[in-house]
């Protein structure tokens, strides 16, 4: 059965990890397979653009740099004219609402990204092994996101709660490397993988 929005990039990797799925300790990684990604481009000086985006997604566009908004979807700031929508909703009804009159440019990126969720006491320590950004408790707050490096891959990192839980969004072709990286470097902290549908 083929799922429209299932990302298979880490499938093999997960299969190898089956043995460790059951015993989750201080640190866990969930792989979110069935979500959609949309990339939005437009000018923040164009109020029609902002209004239209908010109407289409029923959610505020995060205008503050390196933040994300939470509603029906997660909308991440990527650049002054670029955002990433991560959603579990069907894309078709959303895309149908987009008006050709507005200077809003959208690309489907569903096949291009994979999202992992890193959770637990040691999440910060593990990420800091390969990330030069200061993600200390007082420095990287809930609602903040950052495009940065993890090991030798680029990632979008976001803090969603105080457990803490980090969303790691990575380009599909780097997902296996990031998975491997988290596994190898996570040995130190007893990392475990789970697959979330």
């Amino acid at each position: 059965m083929l799922n429209e929005n299932k990302n298979y990039a880490l499938d093999d990797f997960i299969n190898e990890e089956k043995s460790s799925l059951s015993s989750s300790q201080g640190l866990g990684i969930n792989i979110r397979a069935e979500i959609n990604f949309l990339n939005i481009r437009g000018s923040i000086n164009d109020s029609d653009f902002i209004k239209h985006v908010e109407a289409v997604f029923q959610q505020a566009l995060p205008l503050d740099f390196n933040t994300f908004s939470v509603g029906e979807h997660h909308i991440y700031w990527l650049a002054p004219d670029e955002w990433l929508v991560v959603t579990e909703h069907d894309l078709k009804p959303i895309l149908q609402k987009i008006s050709p009159e507005i200077d809003l440019y959208i690309t489907n990126q569903t096949g291009g990204y994979t999202q992992l969720i890193l959770q637990g006491d040691y999440a910060r320590s593990l990420l800091s092994k390969g990330c030069t950004l200061d993600i200390g408790e007082k420095k990287f707050l809930i609602g903040q996101c950052a495009q940065t490096g993890l090991g030798k891959a680029g990632i979008l990192l976001a803090l969603t709660d105080s457990k803490p839980s980090f969303n790691i969004i990575v380009r599909r072709s780097f997902a296996e490397y990031v998975g491997l990286w988290l596994k190898q470097c996570g040995n130190e902290f007893g990392v475990n993988f789970t697959h979330k549908h």
């Binding site: 990339n39 004219d81 670029e82 690309t107 990126q109 096949g111 599909r172």
Partner: peptide, 12 residues
């Protein structure tokens, strides 16, 4: 007024 977005990973 130009926007460039990579599709390298999304498209096979």
């Amino acid at each position: 007024d130009v926007y460039m977005t990579s599709l390298t990973d999304h498209l096979s």
